[in-house]
Design a protein around this nucleic acid. Sequence first.
DNA 1: TTGCGTGCAAAGGTTTTGCATGGCA
DNA 2: TGCCATGCAAAACCTTTGCACGCAA
Lengths: 142, 142
Amino acid sequence: MAKRPANYHTRQGQRILDYMESLGGTHVTVNQIARHFEDTEEIIGQATIYRHLEKLAAGGKIRKYVLNEGKSACYQYIDAVKCRDHFHLKCEICGDLIHADCDLLDKIEKHLLCSHNFKINLLKTVFYGTCQKCLAGGAYEG
Amino acid sequence: MAKRPANYHTRQGQRILDYMESLGGTHVTVNQIARHFEDTEEIIGQATIYRHLEKLAAGGKIRKYVLNEGKSACYQYIDAVKCRDHFHLKCEICGDLIHADCDLLDKIEKHLLCSHNFKINLLKTVFYGTCQKCLAGGAYEG
DNA sequence: TTGCGTGCAAAGGTTTTGCATGGCA
DNA sequence: TGCCATGCAAAACCTTTGCACGCAA
């Protein structure tokens, strides 16, 4: 009954995944991705990029971030295996992604499950805030 | 140099503030607010609602949540007395947004700040996962 | 009277969707 | 061959902005 997408292997899907991997963890917007393929003269429609990013994010290959409200979302390649058991802190100012690995996580996970009956998905959950550097530096853009 | 708005007292501004207060801390979107005034046959333009919400948020009367990039923001009246923070649990299956209000939040907040030097932004952070209903029912919509 | 606040409509931007076609399995 | 994926364009969506008029001070 659950309609499962076939997930064909296509040139476009491969190119997009390759590109995300090649960035080594840097985040990019859809616009930047689109421009990249324009530059390399690969024709990949914007809708296709969106569709693939959505799939990749759902599958845990990449992660989607929303740094500015009206602005476009950012996507970043992650290692789904390594990132399964720690949580992620995304700095809204510098954009850094911090992989936090500590036992608070267990507590949160258990508490949400026991007290709120909520099973958290760590692949998708991101804590937004301000990182050490930006807290200290007090670097505010105009 | 800072151009300070005069902040006239107007019917619209009062009505919007009244309405936000009357909700007692519940979230609403701009759309819900607009519909409310349509229902009560108060003519208040959408732009006016946005402008007032922005002012109220800037003045600390209400709080703005940006939970999803393309989706509309949520606004919540802040009661000076019971100005409780809470966190958000978003069910990936049914889409429900749960407002969880418990003291685990304080622990998380403090821990992230003390141990990870990370100041979490609760207005933006959302915990993704599976809610009680969907865990139990296993109800998948086609 | 002054000039801010308002309402309407249009613009701006990002993301989604419809549909005919092409490509993967 | 069947069906998904693609590309193009248009639509949908939220939010901001421009402008003339009304209303608070």
